[in-house]
Design a protein around this nucleic acid. Structure first.
Lengths: 131, 131
DNA sequence: TAATTTACCTATTGACATAGTAGGTTAATA
DNA sequence: TATTAACCTACTATGTCAATAGGTAAATTA
């Protein structure tokens, strides 16, 4: 299941894209429009800045801004950053310990196939596709 | 992420399919072969019986058995039973409260599309495909 | 009938993730 | 210098996951 972290992150980016006027947009405005707790969004947006999706500016006139055009973001990279991984089973997650049963596992090919389906789906979608 | 409940359930069914000799197979044998705690499998198998995937028999000579041929089980129904739902976001889960933002939600179509992809994938796979 | 085998049942636990809340400090602008 | 807004650390309630523990009931066989 995709959690609020990934889902809210996409909504923040869509909001930024739609209200883009060249200057920074305060988080308060986004939180109000989206009906999401500003305090909670702070945590999410912080990760987005450190992950290079957004840029933030402090002080009056500050806020957040996209660093690329909506065409240049894939949904996959946003979810992957926010959820840690978009793996669908634990044994295929990024930092997962290698499974000793892997070579004999009859279910592994199923998970690999679904994982590829998921990966391809989200990396083929761009932020601009949702506008 | 698909949890051990769904994954172990599939492995139990594959094990039953492969060791099917017409009689009941004790859970202990399955647990030993699969390297999974028998106590934990009890919980999982219980749900599978009440969900109609398996049939159990007590006493000596007892154990578990498939109730259909492997061709007649879809992976989707197994996962859906064990995980409660195979929805990929909370707002699309089975007993979910209707989202007040649904009609205006710009991300909903994305989740619906991914949800359909997931549903179609797992319901197109049969237990026999993994043998 | 007694011993054995096996399913079936209830309860509990430790670890972790999720979805926040609370309250402050730093930085930039008007 | 007042204000705005990001940035930072810490805390918390709730729930799920993956088991474990210790029994009872049912069926077979010696």
């Amino acid at each position: 299941m995709i959690s609020t972290r990934g889902r809210y992150a996409i909504r923040v980016m869509l909001d930024l894209a739609e209200h883009n006027n060249g200057s920074y947009i305060p988080l308060k405005d986004i939180a109000d429009r989206q009906g999401i707790s500003k305090k909670y969004l702070e945590i999410i947006v912080k990760e987005m800045v450190s992950g290079g999706l957004l840029v933030g500016a402090s002080g009056k006139g500050g806020g957040y801004k996209l660093v690329r055009t909506p065409e240049e973001y894939t949904i996959g990279e946003i979810i992957e950053l926010m959820e840690g991984s978009l793996a669908t089973v634990a044994c295929l997650a990024d930092g997962a310990a290698p499974c000793p049963r892997a070579s004999a596992c009859e279910t592994l090919p199923l998970w690999v196939e679904y994982d590829k389906l998921t990966h391809d789906f989200f990396y083929s979608k761009r932020l601009s596709d949702l506008l």
